[in-house]
Amino acid sequence: MTRRSSVFAALLLAAGVVAIPEAARAHAALIEAETVQAIRLHAQYDTGEPMVEAQVIIYAADSPTRVWGLGLTDAAGVYTFVPDDTEGRWTIQVRQAGHGATAHVELAQDAVPVLTASAGAAGQGWPQRALMVALVAWGALGTALFVLRNRKRDNASA
């Protein structure tokens, strides 16, 4: 074998080795583990039903208009993600069929994430709701009676 053909054969062998998939070249696997801080969301409708496969859209604290991440909730309405080191107020929105809610999570170095605000359906009990309906009904009844009294007075004076 000439020197030129030996070099050619060596190059061909090297190219073949490089082209072999990583899994075929490796002999063992290694796992490195680290603990990270994750945010887990539980999304549900005001009826208590989980928002299954709802779309999740995440905005990092440093750029509230640029989408940082996207995802889907699972069958229990849960979505988990690991934010990067950006400190400040992260915004996460979960939405499905025109319904949705937005949550803000405050992230700080060496501190537990704090949910600062969650906009969505208000979690009120039935007594509170009944009281509100009664107050609005009372207001409407008062308006109706006020107008009717004025009309009667106008008719009487006429």
């Binding site: 409708y45 005001d46 009826t47 208590g48 039903e49 928002m51 299954v52 709802a54 499905q96 069929a97 319904h99 709701r129 309906v133 609005v136 009904a137 207001g139 409407a140 009844l141 308006t143 109706a144 009676l145 107008v147 009717l148």
Partner: peptide
């Protein structure tokens, strides 16, 4: 008067919810 009373009915009607997925 009728508008006032029906406003209350409309307001309270939103509380009557039947869960039908996805909402």
């Amino acid at each position: 008067p009728r508008a006032a009373m029906l406003t209350t009915v409309f307001f309270a009607a939103s509380l009557v919810a039947v869960p039908v997925p996805p909402a």
